[in-house]
Every structure is written in structure tokens, then in C-alpha cells.
């Protein structure tokens, strides 16, 4: 068990008249090498929760353990936690600031106190990993396309070689092609390196086919925490909280109601096609 959350609560602007409870008794364990989707409607506490995992926000009450250590212990090294739990914020390209992409990606490893050679090596590797074109390495980050900027920013976090990678809506504002490319890259990264990945999104469709475990947040509480196919079985409840299961789930359920004996748990298009063919006896 890599990360354990024990009854974590978080209240925004405590005692100011604008109090807002963002997290409500969250208990959670995250294992090494998992690929988790964190789903919730806007304002459900997704981003707040992710910022707890690397210590940027401090829980109002409750405990968080990383690798068996209490991160709120006085002698716990918060800086090392932030390098172990890499957090890519929403619209991460807004944090780019250097004159060229390569130097910007070097910012993270440089802050870890690595020497120049190691820093540059890591930056190079990270840019490779996200599939950033080599000829653009020394371009200004501000003259890139949206998708390229996003890759550069994700590389900026990857260059710190985190054990856990959290991506907050990594595909927001990208076109479908850019979205699939980024998500495929992340999936590949997870498969190749065994890194623990947490993908935050409000779209089931996006994450369904990538993740092995789905956590649904609603009003700061965990509503479901299970395999995607089991979570999607509750598609009616999901609708009530402003989320939707993937379209496939709806079609398969409708077919089922219409008298076809199909397996409604399919998640990818291929699985669904197989399920339909099977029910037709072919």
C-alpha cells in the first residue's frame, strides 16, 4: 500500500463566513502500480483531493500516510514527497515560464538538487516519454500548439521521476486527436514503467478504457470505488449526480432490455462488439 488516507476532511476558508466543506471523511488506499480514474462532477472535490496527496493542502482533520510514513509528522520531508508524487495541474501549460522548452522541463529536476548532467538527461527522457518532437526542444514554450504545450508541461513533472503521477484533467481543451494521443501516452507510460497513475476527469468516456479502478466522488465523499464495469452498472445513479456512463453502457443496456442477452459490462468498442456477436450466437 503506497498511499493511505484515513478519514480525511477538508474545509475551505474555515471561520470566515464563507466556509465550504470540500472533503468529507475520505478513506482510501492506493497500491503501487495501479491505474486509477478519479471521477466527479465540477466541485465534487477531485482537485482538492489530489492536492492532499502531495501535501499542497493540509487536511483539516484525518491522516495521510505515504509508504508507511505519516506525512503530517513534524520531521517528514514534504519536499521529497512532492518529488515522489508528481501532480500535473489543470491546464499545466499555464505554468511554463522559461525561454525554451528544454530549460523549462529542467526546472523540476534542478529543484531536486541534481547536477547539470543528470538534470538534462532527465529532461531529455521526459520529453521523449511524452512524444515531444525533438526539433522543437529549443523553441519558446509560448509559440507551441496547445497539445505540444500540454506535453511539455507534463514532461516538466515527469522529469522529476515521480513514483506516483497525478494528472488533473490532462485532456481539457484539447481536440479529440490530441486527447487520445495524450491518454495513449500516459497508458504506455504506466505499462512501461509500472508508475502509479491517477487520472482525474469528469468524463467517463475518456478514462473508462484506460483505468483499472474507478473512484467516483460526489460532494466530497466517495460514492463508488471499484472496477469500471462494476461502477458503470450503476449508470442510473451516476446520472443523478450529473455524470454519465460511456455510451456503450447505454446501448448494451438498451439491447438487454429489448430482449438480447448481451453482457453489459463491456468497456471498449471491441469488447462490446464481441458481446453483441456472442449474443447473436456467432
Amino acid at each position: 500500500m503506497l498511499i493511505i488516507l484515513d478519514k480525511v476532511n477538508y474545509v475551505y476558508s474555515e471561520g470566515s463566513g464563507f466556509e465550504m466543506k470540500a472533503l468529507n471523511d475520505i478513506s482510501l488506499t492506493i497500491n503501487k502500480g495501479e491505474f486509477i480514474g478519479l471521477i466527479g462532477h465540477t466541485g465534487s472535490g477531485k482537485s482538492t483531493l489530489t492536492q492532499h496527496l502531495n501535501g499542497l493542502l493540509r487536511a483539516t482533520s484525518g491522516k495521510i500516510y505515504y509508504d508507511g510514513q505519516d506525512i503530517y509528522d513534524k520531521d517528514f520531508n514534504m519536499k521529497s514527497l512532492r518529488s515522489k508524487v508528481g501532480l500535473v495541474f489543470q491546464y499545466p501549460e499555464h505554468q511554463l515560464f522559461e525561454t525554451d522548452v528544454f530549460t523549462d522541463v529542467c526546472f523540476g529536476p534542478k529543484n531536486l538538487g541534481l547536477d547539470k548532467k543528470e538534470t538534462e538527461l532527465r529532461a531529455f527522457e521526459a520529453l521523449e516519454m511524452v512524444g515531444f518532437p525533438k526539433e522543437l526542444f529549443y523553441n519558446s514554450p509560448f509559440e507551441l500548439s496547445g497539445g505540444q504545450k500540454r506535453r511539455a508541461a507534463i514532461a516538466g513533472v515527469l522529469a522529476m521521476k515521480p513514483e506516483v503521477l497525478i494528472l488533473d484533467e490532462p485532456t481539457a481543451g484539447l481536440d479529440p486527436k490530441g486527447r487520445d494521443e495524450i491518454l495513449d501516452r500516459i497508458k504506455k507510460l504506466h505499462d512501461d514503467t509500472g508508475m502509479t497513475v491517477i487520472l482525474v476527469s469528469h468524463s467517463m468516456e475518456d478514462v473508462a478504457k484506460y483505468v483499472g479502478r474507478l473512484i467516483v466522488l460526489n460532494h466530497g465523499s466517495i460514492m463508488y470505488d471499484d472496477e469500471p464495469r462494476k461502477v458503470f452498472a450503476h449508470y442510473k445513479e451516476l446520472e443523478k449526480i450529473g455524470l454519465a456512463a460511456p455510451q456503450l453502457t447505454y446501448i448494451l443496456n438498451d439491447l438487454n432490455k429489448a430482449g438480447f442477452d448481451v453482457d453489459t459490462g463491456a468497456i471498449t468498442m471491441d469488447e462490446a462488439a464481441q458481446a453483441v456477436l456472442k449474443s447473436l450466437g456467432r
Binding site: 519536499k79 518529488s83 500535473v88 495541474f89 499555464h94 505554468q95 526546472f107 523540476g108 529543484n111 522529476m160
Partner: peptide, 13 residues
């Protein structure tokens, strides 16, 4: 606030 946190996540101090 947001940019500060984003840079802190990259080890900025």
C-alpha cells in the same frame, strides 16, 4: 495561488 501550487509541485521553494 494556482501557479504557486503548480510550481511547488515541481519542487519550487
Amino acid at each position: 495561488d494556482k501557479i504557486m501550487k503548480a510550481q511547488q509541485a515541481r519542487g519550487a521553494d
